[in-house]
Amino acid sequence: MSFSKRYSQYYDLFDHEKKNYRAEAAFVTDMLGRYGIVGGNLLNLGCGTGRHAAEFAATGFSVSGVDMSADMLARADARRISLPGTVAKRLRFQQGDARTVRTDELYDAVVSLFHVASYQTTNADFMAMCHTAATHLPRSGLFLFDCWYGPAVLADPPRVRIKRAASDETVVIRIAEPLMRPHDNTVAVNYTIMMTDGKTQCVETVLETHVMRYMFKPEVELMLDLSGFEVLESVKSMGGELSAADRSATFVARKR
């Protein structure tokens, strides 16, 4: 996942209002616990600024977070330093690509949230991510991830969205303009981000494009099977039966 330095500075600002990281982490730990993973070592692929990782560590997991963005990781490490010592010592972060990173360690579970799987826009990319998970798991280890769910994306395609967020230092307006690419099951989201400095009132504009893939159960199950996993469960975001109205799907798979 590629984010500019400017965008990463406001990553948490955009999402803290709509995302309940503690509740999402509790959902994940509950799902892992249903299949016997209670505490232990966890690999967090695409950890971003470390907010989920910090919540996992607070529940007792030792967490290794991986992200492609050095700036995201700097913010994650600053977060780690600010936490109580007993939590901070269970966190570590490193730079890496979910498709290729190798830590030379085994974990009880591999977790990837915030639709990192949907940034793997080709079959080869997604299977490489699955192979990364398999490489870091013993037999019966769990791989949990979420993604954009294809039926819901097709039933209700993404629309132009405008979001405003503010802090003491800045006001940010983000315009998201999606472009469907139906032949490869992706959406190119073109972002215009306008940042106003609270002191100088100077405005800076950043343009970015994020390409995301929407996925379907049969293809996910096939690629997981080819990567050495069996799918245990597929549910909607935060749990419950997955339907064609659910934009986000969570999959839990066990390494054979």
Score class of each variant (00 low, 15 high):
80 R>M: 02
65 G>H: 03
72 M>P: 11
68 M>W: 06
64 S>K: 06
70 A>V: 01
60 G>M: 08
77 D>G: 05
65 G>I: 10
64 S>G: 04
76 A>K: 10
54 A>P: 05
68 M>Y: 05
67 D>F: 03
67 D>I: 08
70 A>Q: 10
60 G>T: 07
58 A>E: 06
58 A>D: 07
66 V>I: 11
77 D>W: 06
58 A>M: 09
74 A>V: 08
64 S>V: 11
68 M>P: 03
73 L>I: 14
60 G>F: 07
82 S>F: 08
74 A>K: 02
72 M>N: 06
59 T>V: 12
62 S>W: 00
59 T>R: 07
81 I>S: 15
58 A>N: 11
74 A>Q: 11
57 A>R: 02
63 V>W: 01
81 I>W: 12
63 V>R: 01
66 V>L: 09
68 M>I: 12
83 L>G: 03
62 S>D: 02
61 F>K: 00
73 L>A: 07
82 S>V: 03
61 F>R: 01
56 F>W: 00
70 A>K: 13
83 L>W: 09
53 A>I: 06
78 A>M: 05
53 A>S: 15
57 A>I: 00
66 V>C: 08
55 E>D: 12
68 M>G: 15
53 A>V: 07
65 G>T: 05
83 L>V: 00
73 L>S: 08
66 V>Q: 08
54 A>C: 06
79 R>Y: 07
79 R>P: 04
80 R>Q: 10
68 M>K: 11
79 R>V: 12
54 A>T: 07
80 R>P: 15
68 M>T: 10
75 R>C: 08
58 A>K: 10
62 S>Q: 01
72 M>F: 14
57 A>Q: 01
63 V>P: 04
75 R>P: 04
60 G>A: 08
81 I>M: 14
66 V>H: 08
56 F>A: 06
83 L>Y: 10
66 V>T: 06
76 A>C: 14
75 R>Y: 02
63 V>Q: 01
56 F>G: 09
66 V>W: 02
77 D>T: 12
59 T>E: 13
69 S>Y: 00
77 D>C: 05
67 D>Q: 10
76 A>Q: 09
60 G>C: 06
76 A>N: 09
69 S>G: 03
65 G>R: 06
65 G>P: 13
54 A>I: 07
58 A>Y: 10
80 R>F: 09
56 F>D: 04
79 R>E: 05
63 V>G: 02
79 R>D: 03
72 M>T: 02
